[in-house]
């Protein structure tokens, strides 16, 4: 074998060995377990923290409100739809039942008009008729800028001055 070929072969061997070592070091162990990706990434994605807990956890401490809501028109709404994510609120109150909740763990109390307007403001896109006659709108709407804006003394009213948010009539 000519000398230059032998040298080339050695160079190739070194190159391939280096490539294999690099490949071994750089490819994560779980790559290719299920497909062309890192299998462990499924666990990483599944391990992300939760923020919302769901309706069932509120009944333990806010029984009267849960019962009130389940009677009214808002029965189908989740508590956290209005009040925001509550997992931290629940876990804190659960572990330290007699402590006062710090302000950061108190939830929103969406009392202003604009919060009810998100769902109830009159909008053509919310009004649906089947065959021009049957009203199949999901929700009763009012014009938030007209519906009982002020009382007799011209003081501005909030929606919750007349409607209870948990049982709106």
């Amino acid at each position: 074998m000519p000398q230059q070929i032998r040298r080339l072969l050695v160079a190739f061997a070194v190159f391939i060995a280096l490539f294999l070592v690099l490949r071994y070091v750089m490819i994560p162990t779980s790559f290719g377990e299920y497909g062309h990706y890192r299998g462990r990434s499924l666990e990483d994605n599944a391990a992300k923290p939760l923020q919302f807990t769901g309706n069932s956890s509120c009944i333990k401490c806010h029984k009267s409100i849960v019962e009130e809501k389940s009677r009214g028109h808002h029965a189908g709404l989740a508590c956290e739809t209005c009040h925001g994510p509550a997992l931290k609120h629940v876990t804190y109150a659960d572990t330290l039942p007699h402590a006062k909740l710090p302000d950061s763990l108190l939830l929103d109390k969406p009392a202003e008009r604009k919060n009810c307007a998100l769902c109830h403001n009159r909008n053509m896109a919310r009004i649906k008729f089947r065959n021009d006659t049957v009203n199949i709108s999901m929700i009763k709407q009012v014009d938030v800028m007209k519906h009982n804006l002020v009382d007799k003394n011209n003081e501005s009213l909030k929606c919750i001055d007349c409607h209870f948010p948990h049982d709106p009539y």
Partner: peptide, 24 residues
């Protein structure tokens, strides 16, 4: 969107499904 993979793996609905007021 991960379809709230961390939620569905625990058997809960993704957040947007749970918070929808009309079941759309």
């Amino acid at each position: 969107c991960s379809l709230c993979y961390h939620r569905i793996k625990k058997g809960i609905q993704p957040a947007c499904f749970e918070m929808c007021p009309t079941g759309a």
